[in-house]
Amino acid sequence: MNRYWIKMLNLVLVVGILFAYNTTLEHRTQAEEIARLTAELASSNLQLAKYAEKTDNRESQEQPVESDYVDGVYQASARGYGGDITMELMIEQGMMTRLNILSAAEEDGAYLQMASSMVKEILRQQSVEVDTVSGATYSSIGIRDATAKALEQAKK
């Protein structure tokens, strides 16, 4: 009987601690975000003022970005955990703009879902050299390698 209640109490404690931990961190990140945005706002006001002064003698800076890649849609596969993962990569104006997992039949659902956060990261960093998702290493490597191969095809 006692053991049962001790286990119950432990469980409640652990869950409580994890919730408290998450809430604390959330508050902290919010506070940091506010501080960052405030600072950004202040500096952008400053820049705006400077920009208004200089705006006459400034040429348009919008030039097409130099890129090593040819626009188009590319596909490539690489070995994941249980089999091949096929990725589809779209390049527009030399940038990676879209990346999809076309097929990954042999991957386990939960692992693939964890690893698929790599897709956003690759697009954000415009590079395949991103960290693999810990716990889902094989699926991550499959996504990364397939994307790298697709990118290789796109090279001029």
Binding site: Y21, N22, E26, T29, S134
Partner: peptide
Amino acid sequence: FTRLGVREPIEMNSF
């Protein structure tokens, strides 16, 4: 426990 180690929030992911 990995997240606790690096003081990052625990997300409700599939694991």
